[in-house]
Design a protein around this nucleic acid. Sequence first.
DNA 1: CAGTTCTATAACTAGATGGTTTTATACGTG
DNA 2: CACGTATAAAACCATCTAGTTATAGAACTG
Lengths: 118, 118
Amino acid sequence: MAPDILDATFAALADPTRRAILARLAQGEATVMELAAPFAMSQPGVSKHLRVLERAGLISRGRDAQRRPCRLEATRLKTAMDWLADYRSYWEESYQRLDDLLGELEAGRSGAGEREAL
Amino acid sequence: MAPDILDATFAALADPTRRAILARLAQGEATVMELAAPFAMSQPGVSKHLRVLERAGLISRGRDAQRRPCRLEATRLKTAMDWLADYRSYWEESYQRLDDLLGELEAGRSGAGEREAL
DNA sequence: CAGTTCTATAACTAGATGGTTTTATACGTG
DNA sequence: CACGTATAAAACCATCTAGTTATAGAACTG
């Protein structure tokens, strides 16, 4: 798993405009103008975000006359998620600890009173 | 889901040194010196990475005399993964298309054969 | 061909980032 | 108290980033 892939992917995802663009593309292809519309940003600004997304492999671009329709490419999202999934046990463990604690509090409150408070 | 949380989380994950630090912390608490050891980087350099991770909520720090042991905090990783999970269907769809394509190729090549290999 | 639409490029700016070295702080030990 | 250890903070530098405006190119339209 080449590190620079994860570097570029996570860096691309670290911007709300780019995440919004991906969310829009999840509904289907869109042109640069369509993607730019919701944002108070110049067209070149959006084009730069698209270039970042493209270089990260998160989108690809076709051609339709003057238009360069963008489409979502989800495999890099899967790569990122696979990396995160290795840590799943750690947050589940956190929930487990919280769960245990809540269980103890519950038992303590209504029962023989072992560990009444924090 | 506050966007700046995802901003900070993904930005923190976009650096290989920081991801390596998280991987190390997955094995248990570690001091700054211990975390710095594997890297050809100054101690303040590592401290700065730790500050980024801490501000992103990905680690927390205790105190043990002069030491400031770091521990992994996984809930922000879960937040990031939850965001990515919304796109799961898109990469599964990609695999489905690839699967369909391979199926068609196979069917075309060997007639009635049912997908002998990849 | 002239004009309009869609997109990309160039040049620039302000601010963030990743690293350094040096210095300061806080704690434990002799 | 003086010293060593662990960490943070400060100041600095080079590079990257996100944005801008202005310009250029490419393709349709009249």
